[in-house]
Nucleic acid binder design. Structure first.
Lengths: 192, 192
DNA sequence: TCCACTATTTGACATAGGTCAAAGGAAAGC
DNA sequence: GCTTTCCTTTGACCTATGTCAAATAGTGGA
């Protein structure tokens, strides 16, 4: 997914706006398993994923990683709260595959927000879209069985299960790796 | 909390902008236990809660109500997804106390978004703020024990526990009313 | 003030999913 | 082609929280 096409699909930017906006992004090629942000750091960039997969996660006291979100092609990726509030990140942000990202700094983004009414609109629309997604996940996690949550995930991130380790998916879904493994095996009716 | 003060605190609107914006809101006095939106209806308005408390909830197949969110004084309230995507609401929206709301329709809000760059900014900021809150709840619900979730709720909605029925809070927290009751009793260490 | 509801608490018991430990598989480096 | 390490599966057992049912406590209305 191309950044320009992505932007055009959401808000009817003029060609001049598009040119100026994309000029503020920088292409970055990131190799597999690279960490972009660590816990405690302030996240300075917002990334558009042109190719690859990323995830945000945090460490529980016992040292276990808990996946917070996956970021696939054609989505923006960041430690959102840290980036927007400029506070230390609670999360790690990492790339799980060889990836191509387009990044923009907070200052440049603010500049574009201030410069273009359309840009502000883009921000609002993307933010409400993300809000909807998070609410969906919340409902899945809060009120569904482990198996139903797995089904939810397949709709939210269709192809991810073959691309990322099972443990990352399990913690994203709020279950253990063992449980997810048993679900995948497919013993539906029997007790898991 | 006054609507004008609330708006001014977030974005530096001009007095003219503020006057025009607030002129598009309508005051509504709603009596206790009134339902504003039903499942399947498209939610036509966004409400600012000047006084009172509201909540959104949905009905599970077995007929049990599950609280999705509480809306307290000084917050915007709506069946958000329905309002912004103009799709049938998955949720009921109701007022739990005698309340004073300021409402705006989708058309008027879009008009203001289009008219004022600052308004678009307000939308973006409120949306990211809400996103942060939902993410916090998600983390609480997904990885904390029933007791910890209760503590989380006390920070998110400090005074709500005395204002709304225990069952509504329990389902908001993803636990049964019995469990919440036992937590409140305070048998911390012993098995609940 | 009493009644009729509705909301909350309590107890006994059931279970989904977690924990711990170990065994297979797959994959990366040499 | 081996070795080492990591990832996934499996089994046995455990626990937090759910379910069901009944007992109390609160509350608004007549």
């Amino acid at each position: 997914m191309n950044l320009i096409d992505f932007l055009k699909n959401i808000v009817p930017f003029t060609p001049e706006e598009l040119a100026d906006i994309t000029a503020h992004f920088e292409r970055e090629n990131i190799s597999k398993n690279n960490t972009l942000v660590r816990e405690g750091q302030v996240c300075t960039k917002l990334y558009f994923v042109k190719k690859g997969v990323g995830r945000s996660y945090y460490l529980k006291e016992d040292g276990k990683e808990v996946t917070q979100w996956f970021f696939i092609e054609g989505k923006f990726m960041s430690s959102i709260e840290s980036f927007f509030q400029q506070t230390p990140s609670l999360y790690y942000l990492e790339v799980l595959e060889e990836s191509v990202l387009y990044s923009i700094t907070r200052e440049n983004l603010d500049l574009l927000f201030a410069r273009y009414h359309n840009m502000e609109k883009l921000g609002r629309l993307l933010s409400t879209e993300m809000l909807t997604r998070v609410v969906n996940k919340l409902n899945a996690v809060q009120f569904q069985t482990a198996r139903e949550r797995y089904d939810y995930m397949l709709t939210e991130f269709p192809y991810i299960s073959s691309r990322v380790p099972l443990g990352s998916i399990a913690s994203y879904l709020g279950m253990t790796q063992e449980t997810l493994s048993r679900i995948r095996r497919g013993d539906t009716s029997k007790k898991i």
